[in-house]
């Protein structure tokens, strides 16, 4: 973030277009580099939610699994907030 971005934010102004360009590029490149189609990413996201939900109670509305990229390295970043503190996170087995 640059000083200008901060000033824009404080004044509620639209960000400078360079800053928008940078954000859009970063997102599109994360997808280009991973070679994952949106459908596959979506399927993976659902399966990850399912697996995690077996162990903890997560807030599906707030949860997000997305691609991020830095220095030509792409990472899958999951942000899955718990709905409430879990007492014993032992897996349900049957």
């Amino acid at each position: 973030m640059t000083l200008r971005d901060l000033v824009d934010k404080l004044l509620g102004r639209q960000p400078a277009s360079a800053s928008t360009a940078r954000d859009r590029l970063q997102l599109v490149l994360a997808h280009d580099r991973s070679d994952l189609s949106p459908e596959l990413l979506d399927q993976m996201r659902r399966e990850i939610f399912e697996v995690v939900a077996k162990y903890v109670d997560i807030d599906l509305e707030e949860g997000d699994v997305s691609l991020e990229t830095e220095d030509r390295v792409t990472a899958l970043v999951a942000n899955l907030p718990f709905r409430r503190p879990v007492a014993s996170p032992s897996p349900k087995s049957d």
């Binding site: 400078a16 360079a18 940078r22």
Partner: peptide, 18 residues
């Protein structure tokens, strides 16, 4: 345009492309 932040800065491009 770069000074007005209406064009990607040099660092933006070199950072993104590494």
């Amino acid at each position: 345009m770069m000074a007005n932040q209406e064009m990607l800065a040099v660092d933006d491009v070199t950072d993104i492309l590494a």
